[in-house]
Design a protein around this nucleic acid. Structure first.
Lengths: 339, 339
DNA sequence: GTGAAAGCGCTAACAC
DNA sequence: GTGTTAGCGCTTTCAC
């Protein structure tokens, strides 16, 4: 069971196998790919030779002649955020089930240079297609730079009819969450906004809509990045303002930060202030109080994205699908202290 | 600015560029790789032709002749667990800074078939080397299957002198955390054990050691998977046993689940039971009560892993480095209710 | 500096 | 079924 061919340390090639098995190179290729029938006895000889030499086909050579990479690229922002991480998990899972590998490249920001670098990195590898997470401006910018000739599917973000895409129907869930808070008796609902693909889409748009529908003033949203610690600061600030009785946060991690800040600032949740999040983070149910939120199935988003890409690769056209979040009512929202 | 060569939709090749620029193919290659000087005027013509044709070198062809993939494989268990996710973030960051892409494959379990499938997936792509996360049995099994000829670095887990590796010095931190609880006055400390690379290493070993050093009985550890919801069940169970006054959990997410279960079961944290975690999850500081834990710099682990792999690729030998966790004392641990 | 020639290790096309 | 002949699109000699 040598792992090398002959005396040198050079990895065995298909012709080493052919030589040892006493067949031609294409015959070896045939047993490798199963592209054509081979006499059982030769098949056996070849398999034996492969095992004996510890032969593995050279992936680059394979790709060069077959023109299939067996890999897809993934463009994403920071992978440590729950929604991104879960989406990638879904992509990987579905891709792997399909024998496809995923090549991940992070787009650090929407800055020209960063975007260019990330796209360049992706394109400099053999890929069958690309999935881009369009949750935020970085994703949008990256998508724009991708050549039209490359099969691409966009995940989430605003609708772009020029590409296959899986949409997250966040607006309605954002509206419902806000309306629920209003129904509970809150005069208005404040919003802590996370970076998103467009200023006025998705969850934030739903929030605005609910307030408008109810004829309430729309307080200016508070912007935050992804770090929950920033949200703690925002929470402390909001604790100072007793007009704030209900807060709709861009995601659960931010909601947890806001709750921490509110409590640090001396306000009870949900007694003084109701807080709701978005996404249903795995820890949201364990939080004290348990977080009311809208569950998003990010893994399904990722899986579906891979399927759409596969369809596109198989010659299908651009498709658009949509995923609905579902409301999860827990303990962090309640009626305001006094009417 | 056409993106294709000639009338057909076929992507432009290096010879299209050579033709248009009026130079030979190798000359184009020279300006592409910078491997040799080219007369400024020709350089210019070539660059113009490249732009005009929207030419991009074919990655597979490039790899086949240059024998460099510009990519590294990453073998990991479930990517949604904090430690794994952060490590991968570090790997990606360092790799990208280096112009290297990462190809991620998840090893679902230590089952023969799953491991084989994951390793196969990695090896069927052009890669310069592999980084394997050896936090758990799946990682260990995958590592064992990787051919000796491939440059590999192992991250965390038990020391394996046959490969480059970055160690996490968890034992001492586990010991210190447990000893701290004992010093607070607890008779013993219970342990909720997460899947790990070996039954008796790292954090769990430190816990055992601290108890032994103090001459205390070592209660049987409670085993759990990665899902915090399982930990909630364990917490409820422990709430029934008033011998349990201090719990050292395998990681922070598990600690949060255990706390939830304890509280659900009517016990206060830390008043009735002290709980400590491990890793310093970003939400650990925001939890109520804030979680005492040991901070691990997983991103640094990942970055260092890439550096070791790079050294190995450059002809260096096997290296072993080590990273020390640091204790983070917060509010979830306190003296037991009564002496 | 530059071009011609020769691979890299495979798969595809085409006879037989 | 199987071997022979051609590429895939680059990089790398090696003369000039």
């Amino acid at each position: 069971m040598t792992a090398t061919a002959g005396s040198d340390g050079r990895p065995a090639t298909i012709s080493d196998v052919a030589l040892l098995a006493g067949v031609s190179v294409p015959t070896v290729s045939r047993v490798l790919t199963g592209s054509a029938r081979v006499t059982p006895s030769k098949q056996d000889q070849v398999e034996r030779a492969i095992a004996q030499l510890g032969f593995r086909p050279n992936p680059a050579a394979r790709q060069l002649s077959s023109r299939e990479a067996g890999a897809i690229g993934v463009l994403t922002a920071d992978t440590s955020i729950h929604g991104y991480a879960e989406t990638i998990r879904g992509i990987e899972e579905e891709a792997r089930a399909n024998g496809t590998a995923i090549l991940i490249t992070v787009v650090e920001s929407a800055e020209e240079e960063r975007v260019e670098q990330a796209v360049e990195a992706v394109l400099s590898h053999p890929l069958d297609g690309v999935i881009a997470l369009k949750f935020d401006p970085a994703g949008v910018a990256a998508l724009r730079r991708l050549p039209r000739s490359l099969p691409v599917v966009a995940l989430a973000g605003a609708r772009d009819p020029s590409r296959s895409q899986v949409l997250l129907a966040e607006k309605e869930a954002g509206r419902a969450l806000t309306a629920m808070l209003l129904d509970l008796g809150h005069r208005t609902v404040h919003h802590v906004r996370i970076p998103s693909s467009s200023r006025n889409s998705g969850r934030a748009a739903g929030w605005r809509r609910a307030l408008q529908d109810a004829g309430r003033a729309v307080p200016p949203p508070l912007d935050t990045g992804w770090d929950p610690r920033d949200a703690v600061r925002l929470g402390r600030l909001m604790a100072l303002d007793d007009q704030v009785t209900a807060v709709f946060c861009g995601n659960d991690e931010i909601a947890m930060g806001v709750m921490r800040g509110l409590i640090d600032g001396g306000r009870g949740v949900p007694d003084d202030v109701s807080v709701v999040g978005f996404d249903d983070h795995p820890l949201a149910a364990l939080w004290t109080p348990a977080l009311t939120t809208a569950r998003q199935d990010f893994a399904a988003l990722g899986r579906l994205g891979v399927r759409l890409l596969r369809e596109q690769l198989a010659g299908g056209g651009r498709v658009c699908r949509s995923l609905e979040p579902s409301l999860v009512l827990r303990g962090s929202a309640s009626p305001p202290r006094s009417g």
